Amino acid sequence: MKVLVATEKPFAKIAVDGIRKEVEAVGYELALLEKYTEKQALLDAVKDANAIIIRSDIIDKEVFDAAPNLKIVVRAGAGYDNVDLEAATAHGVCVMNTPGQNSNAVAELVFGMLIMAVRNFYDGKSGTELKGKKLGIHAYGNVGRNVARIAKGIGMDIYAYDAYCPKEVMEADGIKALDSAEELYATCDIVSLHIPATPETKNSINYALVNRLPKNGILVNTARKEVINEAELIQLMDERADLKYITDIMPVANEIFAAKFPGRYFSTPKKMGAQTAEANINAGIAAARQIVGFLRDGCEKFRVNK
């Protein structure tokens, strides 16, 4: 069996070493395609691969067509919208993600950006503290749980809304569970987004919803840029000079946000949530273990396509 690691943004060497150890321990071959700049390099590399480990790399129908022996693709990370699930299913390929491996890294970034925002981006002027603020967690998954854990240590008042997570689960963690996104935004000083990009959620963070934030509200996005209705958020921030938007996913309209809202807007230059040595290692090794579990034992625990 041949396992290909195809990463335009490479794993750290220690992560590759860990992946190699997992793969070669069961007699599989490991191949690396790193820092490639042309899609053709990926198409050539997958021709004889049985499994692929990727990061943010695009795996579409063309890639599946070029990989007749492919059985599984594992996205080292939680999000998997860079993989064409329909094409994967049509080709009989299992797609998995590695939920939870990057969660702490993303959660820590939320607070790194938040502290910067409440201190006015360190412009020398007096800011505010996070302690005592009402934090709303929009989607209580792995990242949301880690955000809640850190927020408790800071002394924040924590609320959450998740259409798919039972209230009892959130309440057992000491979180105040609310009944709707509308209630969450109306209640909290800060809302941290952790929803996936789905047909239901795309553009769902809009004027009407964000306008429910109280005075000096802050919206934090470490989820997906597609969930933000950018035109409506720009309109709202034009009308409300008190709102701030900080994001780990650069908007399509980044230049407009930056020009119109200095001191109220910040975007990382590229998605940084999982960019820690620990998350890099954890996700890569988890991906390798899941491939071995699938190819050797038929384990489909983290399968995301049907």
Rank of each mutant, 00 (worst) to 15 (best):
H91F: 06
K152E: 11
F121L: 10
V95G: 15
G144A: 04
V74N: 14
K71V: 03
R145F: 04
S56N: 10
V46I: 01
K152Y: 09
A66I: 11
D48W: 06
A67Q: 10
A49M: 01
N146P: 06
P68D: 15
N82L: 13
L70A: 12
G79Y: 13
N142I: 01
A45V: 06
A88K: 07
A67Y: 00
A45I: 05
K125I: 11
I150M: 07
T128E: 03
V93K: 00
M96C: 14
N82G: 03
M113E: 01
T128P: 00
I53C: 10
A151L: 02
K47H: 06
Y122A: 13
Y140W: 03
V110G: 01
V95P: 08
K133D: 02
A117L: 00
Q101F: 02
K61M: 07
A88T: 14
A148E: 11
V147H: 11
G100I: 04
A151R: 01
V74C: 12
N104D: 11
D65E: 09
N142Q: 13
P99F: 02
H91V: 12
K61F: 02
I115W: 04
D60E: 12
M96K: 09
S103K: 07
Y80A: 05
P99K: 14
D57T: 09
N146K: 15
V143R: 03
N146R: 15
V46Q: 00
M96S: 13
K131S: 02
K125V: 14
G77F: 05
I137P: 10
Y140E: 06
K133N: 10
N146W: 11
I52D: 04
I115M: 02
N97S: 15
Q101D: 05
L70C: 04
A66R: 13
A76Q: 10
R145H: 03
A76R: 12
A151Y: 02
F121V: 03
A51C: 08
G124N: 12
V73P: 10
G124I: 07
D48M: 07
D65N: 13
N50A: 03
A66Y: 09
P99A: 03
V46L: 00
S56M: 10
V93T: 03
I58H: 10
L130P: 02
I52K: 12
L130Q: 01
A139W: 01
T128Y: 00
R149G: 05
I53N: 14
N97Y: 08
A105W: 04
V118C: 00
A45R: 07
V63H: 04
P99H: 07
V147M: 09
L109A: 00
A45C: 09
M116P: 00
K134T: 03
T98N: 15
G79R: 08
D84S: 15
G132F: 01
V74E: 06
I54L: 07
D81F: 07
H138M: 15
G77L: 06
K131I: 03
A151K: 09
L109P: 01
R75T: 11
V110T: 05
L130E: 02
E108P: 04
L70Y: 10
Y122E: 10
N97D: 05
M113L: 15
K125D: 08
R75A: 09
V46Y: 00
N104M: 13
T98K: 13
D123P: 06
A88V: 12
E129S: 08
G136T: 08
D60S: 14
D48V: 04
K152H: 05
A139Q: 11
S56A: 06
M116S: 11
L85Q: 10
P68C: 13
G153V: 06
L130G: 00
